[in-house]
Write a protein that binds this DNA or RNA. Structure first.
Length: 831
RNA sequence: GGGCGGGUGGCGGAACUGGCAGACGCGCGGGACUUAGGAUCCCGUGCCGCAAGGCGUGAGGGUUCGACCCCCUCCCCGCCCACCA
């Protein structure tokens, strides 16, 4: 045999990729008797070239998938493209190239990039959401959800992105009212739109979070906050002139401290309640608020402003009258758009009351400790629960007890009821854009919006649309598309010209992978029984709300449609950190710190890049690109290569001789088996690829330190080399295949390491027979002794007391106590 | 303001369940090999100190024979949410 002396990744890598591809080794469903595992990474939007974030996500997922496959599972590890969306359309506005054409080209180059990384995808299941074969099922789901009243049309304030020129969802509006996608200002616009009734699942989505124990807590917390359940009560304050203001509060126990009400400027009652003498002032305020954008009006630090309407309202509990104000900080769309203000026990109300010299009335006292000061002595609101006072019949009750009793009394008295409010809003998914799924609706003068019948799906996206970026739906300018007969009466009607949010595509693609060519239904429920839920899902934490919420919502809908067996789409979620530039800043053209995988793979090979990504830090942490560390990984692989080359004489060693390995050779065998254990643990549970790889490095270092002579020694080296190749294979699969085949020789020509069984560590070798025990005096390290694993306190103590440095510290002192931890340390406590 | 993470050598990061802090890699220093070395192999590398020894996991306190780990007070950094009633 003659191994190449030099490690040359380029030739090795393409060769093994070809072997994997022709062997069908990564085809899911090839092990019908085996337990399944579904490993999924969030699919990419195919922009021109793959970037480091993609390289990281798929490298992490691939290590998991490869390991599980070697553990004997039938692994589903698919890939596809999230191919509809704005970037292709925005680029079209600039250069006129059709988004479809651009996307196809991008997919071709992106696919090639993915392939050079050697990911073990089942390419036979590849999908692209821009294919009518895919998006027709978006339309199918739309129609099914319409039938179930989970889709509706609403007119109201929608979030309009001034950059994307389309309506976007609440979840897509990020801080300072900017667009999550392009960063442009988002304004409110009165527009009719289609929405999914995700709020119907609010309770269920919230309750389901408790079962997601293998999701990062921060993700479930973010979802919990986003869903935002708050329990409280609605109460009516009767108006003097008739009618009532309904307020929502979570602190009904403080209602006797209510000294005024505040309505949102948009509240429908504003006009009615305003006293004629106040009308001018109130109208001016309302007008001004309308002109001020939401950010300025309700953003951080915006000063609280308001005006008195002149109206008085009656507290339903105490009968006292309170003035009705309007103010900038009350949001029309949350709760009832009206709040009862309790300045003593709510900081925001407190600030407002001080500014406008409204009374402050303390009605809650702490259960223990000092009384809350009153009047000018009160510097801030006290917001903790406590004991009620000056609250009529409820005085003396605890806050919690008061809340439930007062809510019950409100219901009995017909002036209110306990209520639950949600932060979650319905998902508005209409987009005034071209490159999306057409909404399958025909507007008929007679019948209104009529869904396109299932047999007429898909409604195809017309290729000839002119994309101008004016904010008008481009489809509206294609008469061949727009004009269609009403499915119900046949009269000339107009198609809906808006398209769907692309988050629809990513809400159920995980299910489409199960039977991607099925043209009779979105996916085969039998396959769903086999493969769902996803066992491990890898992606960025930026999808904590938005994708991951929609995805959970959609899975529930599919479950309610009888398509799947379970409520939750995914058992375990792994969120990976980002890859920053070498300067520690986010990679960006602006900083000139962008490093792309392509050139790195060309220069060092995919295995080196993969190792760098996995070794730099645990998956969830951000990492900085480092040329030096990449060099280090490349050196490591070359070092591995050289030790195989240098130990070729061990490749044919007789395994039977292993039992005779002794001394350092037995230590080597121990190291080998401990490494198996360490790498295996790093691939399970907490994913710690970095320490697993460190273990492999230690094994390599030990191999370099030993020169085998006899048969048992060569057998021990062969065992180590084989373990090294196998354990390396989830991380650096190409080099691992090559080295493994070198050791096994022609006898293994037909086999693939990728589908070989994962090794088991021999427990007898993992357990050491002697251990180093630290010797402490008063908790300070003064020496160490070697002792048998089973050595007891007396034996270790005797050994320790022989140590010179230990003796020096024990000399002339009384040993008060000896603490002995078997296999670890002995501590002499002296006085 | 609220929630969730973090803070360990010059750098990235290790450390099981309270038991030898700094594995492994990078960087740096030295040596070997070599016509050469920015290749390779070997050795060293937390800080102070010639040494013995002392000091060290953001700061301060506590519990303990023993604390990166548990408790209290505080500082700093990151991410997410935020006039949500």
């Amino acid at each position: 045999m003659s191994m190449n002396e030099r490690y040359e990744p380029q030739s090795i890598e393409s060769r093994w990729r070809a072997r994997w591809e022709e062997s069908g080794a990564f085809r899911a469903g090839s092990r019908p008797g085996a337990e399944k595992r579904y490993v999924l990474e969030m699919f990419p939007y195919p922009s021109g070239a793959m970037h480091m974030g993609h390289a990281r996500v798929y490298t992490i997922g691939d290590a998991i998938a490869r390991h599980l496959r070697m553990r004997g599972f039938d692994v589903l590890h698919p890939i596809g493209f999230d191919a509809l969306g704005l970037p292709a359309e925005n680029a079209a506005i600039k250069d006129g190239k059709h988004p479809g054409e651009r996307t196809r080209e991008n997919i071709v180059s992106f696919r090639a990039d993915l392939k050079t990384m050697g990911f073990s995808f089942d390419w036979s299941r590849e999908l692209a959401t821009c294919d009518p074969e895919y998006y027709r099922w978006n339309q199918w789901f739309f129609v099914k959800m319409l039938e179930r009243d989970l889709v509706y049309r609403r007119t109201g304030k929608a979030n309009w992105c001034t950059g994307c020129l389309t309506v976007i969802a609440n979840e897509q509006v990020v801080e300072e009212n900017r667009c999550e996608r392009c960063g442009s200002q988002v304004v409110e616009k009165q527009i009719p739109e289609w929405a999914f009734r995700i709020t119907a699942y609010a309770d269920d989505l919230l309750a389901g979070l408790d079962e997601l124990r293998d999701w990062p807590e921060r993700i479930t917390t973010m979802q919990r906050n986003w869903i935002g359940r708050s329990e409280g009560a609605e109460v009516d304050f009767a108006l003097e002139g008739g009618g009532a203001v309904k307020v929502f509060t979570t602190r009904l126990d403080t209602i006797f401290g209510c000294t005024y009400l505040v309505l949102a400027p948009e509240h429908p009652l504003v006009e009615q309640v305003t006293e004629p003498s106040r009308r001018a002032e109130v109208q001016a305020f309302v007008e001004r608020m309308k002109r001020t954008d939401a950010l300025e009006r309700t953003g951080e630090g915006a000063p609280k402003e308001g005006v008195f309407t002149g109206a008085l309202a009656v507290n339903p509990y105490g009968g006292g009258k309170v003035p009705v104000w309007i103010a900038n900080f009350v949001l029309a769309e949350y709760g009832t758009g009206a709040v009862m203000s309790v300045p003593a026990h709510d900081q925001r109300d407190f600030e407002f009351a001080r500014k406008y010299r409204l009374p402050v009335r303390v009605v809650i006292q702490p259960a223990r400790g000092e009384r809350t000061p009153e009047g000018d002595a009160l510097a801030a609101a006290t917001t903790d629960d406590g004991v009620l006072e000056a609250s009529g019949p409820y005085s003396g009750l605890s806050s919690a007890a008061a809340r439930s009793r007062m809510a019950a009394d409100a219901r009995a008295g017909g002036f209110g009821a306990p209520t639950v409010r949600w932060h979650l809003r319905d998902w508005g998914f209409s987009r005034q854009r071209y490159w999306g799924t057409p909404i399958p609706i025909i507007h008929c003068d007679e019948h209104g919006p009529v869904p396109v019948p299932e047999k007429d799906l898909p409604v195809l996206l017309p290729p000839q649309a002119i994309i101008t970026g004016t904010g008008e739906p481009p489809l509206a300018k294609v008469p061949e598309f727009v004009n269609a007969p009403c499915p119900r009466c046949g009269r000339p009607s107009r198609r809906e010209t808006e398209t769907m949010d692309t988050f629809v595509d990513s809400s159920w693609y995980h299910a489409r992978y199960l039977s991607p060519r099925d043209d009779a239904r979105p996916f085969d429920p039998a396959e769903a029984r086999r493969w769902l839920p996803i066992d491990v899902y890898v992606g960025g934490p930026e999808h904590a709300v938005m994708h991951l919420l929609y995805f959970r919502f959609w899975h529930r809908v599919m479950n309610d449609l009888g398509l799947t067996q379970e409520r939750e789409p995914c058992r375990r979620l792994v969120t990976q950190g980002i890859v920053n530039g070498p300067d520690g800043r986010k990679m960006s053209k602006r900083w000139g710190n962008v490093v792309t995988p392509g050139p790195m793979v060309e220069r060092y090979g995919a295995d080196t890049l993969r190792l760098f990504i996995l070794f730099a830090a645990p998956p969830e942490k951000d990492i900085d690109w480092s040329d030096e560390q990449v060099e280090g990984m490349s050196r490591f692989l070359a070092r591995v290569w050289r030790i195989f080359h240098a130990r070729q004489d061990c490749f044919r060693a007789d395994e039977a001789a292993l039992a005779q390995a002794a001394g350092p050779w037995l230590d080597l065998r121990r190291r080998t088996h401990r490494t198996i254990k360490k790498v295996t643990e790093g691939l399970e549970g907490d994913l710690k690829f970095n320490t697993g790889i460190a273990g492999l490095m230690e094994l390599v270092n030990e191999l370099y330190a030993l020169e085998p002579r006899g048969a048992p020694e060569r057998a021990a080296v062969r065992e180590a080399l084989l373990a090294l190749a196998v354990l390396l294979s989830p991380f650096a699969p190409h080099a691992a295949e090559e080295l493994w085949h070198e050791v096994l020789g022609p006898g293994a020509r037909e086999r693939l390491l990728a589908t070989e069984p994962w090794p088991a560590a021999d427990p007898a070798l993992v357990a050491a027979d002697t251990v180093t025990i630290a010797v402490q005096v008063n908790g300070k390290l003064r020496g160490e002794v070697r002792a048998a694993v089973a050595a007891g306190e007396a034996e270790v103590r005797a050994l320790a007391e022989k140590e010179e440095r230990v003796r020096a510290h024990l000399d002339g002192k009384t040993v008060r106590k000896v603490v002995f931890v078997p296999q670890r340390l002995i501590n002499f406590v002296v006085g």
